[in-house]
């Protein structure tokens, strides 16, 4: 860990995050988020968490960016966020209080790499000392994830596959669906006509953005 480099990376992270929220062009926002992930992975690599760093670079900077771009291609490239000044002024003290709370809590954390820290007591000692003997795997992270804690990994994989299935359920258009339906407002197939009957309000909120999106998509 090199302290000046870390400070620079943190500054870049904050700037990238603020810009990504404020920029109007969503493609630029995606690029900024990918840059954010890359710098975050640098930060992880700086503290020798190479596995986390690789996952952050591959999934954070690569895949989520691609998925976001896919979503942009399917909808609109320009954000139409409304600026609500009053809400901003009420949010500000809340965010400040949250940051203060986090900073206060961080003073109670053990130093990084402290061998007496609670996280390094108990089972982790056994894992670290026994991993090579038990599993012949030099990379402790891998033996932890896929052997000692493989049920956690099973759960995580299940979550990802479930996410894909849920995306299919929500987004796939079936035969017999109304052709005019946008994918965004499609409630997902065979809800009964009554439940689906659109009141004027729903129509307004459902259709108006669509017109915008179509114009945006053609640009």
């Amino acid at each position: 860990m090199i302290v000046p480099l870390d400070i620079i990376i943190f500054l870049v992270l904050i700037i990238a995050a603020v810009l990504a929220i404020n920029v109007k062009d969503l493609l630029a926002a995606v690029a900024l988020l990918a840059g954010y992930s890359l710098f975050a992975s640098l930060l992880f690599a700086g503290v020798n968490a190479v596995d986390v760093s690789l996952v952050e670079a591959a999934l954070g900077a690569g895949l989520t960016g691609v998925l976001f771009i896919g979503a942009i291609l399917a909808t609109s490239r320009h954000s139409t966020a409304k600026r609500n000044l009053r809400r901003r002024w009420t949010m500000l003290p809340l965010i400040a209080a949250f940051i203060g709370l986090m900073l206060f809590a961080s003073t109670g954390l053990p130093d990084r790499g402290d061998p007496e820290a609670p996280a390094h007591q108990g089972v982790s000692r056994t894992y670290l000392s026994q991993s090579l003997e038990d599993t012949e795997t030099p990379n402790v992270v891998t033996s932890l994830l896929a052997d000692y804690r493989s049920q956690d990994t099973l759960g995580e994989t299940l979550v990802i596959v479930t996410a894909a299935l849920a995306a299919m359920l929500v987004l796939v258009r079936r035969e017999g669906d109304d052709e005019d339906d946008t994918r965004g407002s499609d409630p997902g197939g065979d809800t009964s006509g009554e439940a689906r009957g659109t009141t004027d309000d729903e129509q307004e909120s459902g259709r108006d953005p669509y017109a915008d999106e179509r114009e945006g998509g053609r640009r």
Binding site: L63, G70, A74, E136, A146, I160, L165
Partner: peptide, 30 residues
């Protein structure tokens, strides 16, 4: 055996993540 088990699990996770991500992209692209 545990070494080999880890390998099989990693391959399974890799295939599952690959399939899930490709599925999400295809679904997004209609």
């Amino acid at each position: 055996m545990r070494y080999l088990g880890i390998l099989v699990v990693e391959i399974g996770v890799g295939l599952a993540v690959f399939g899930a991500m490709v599925t999400i992209f295809d679904v997004l692209m209609d």
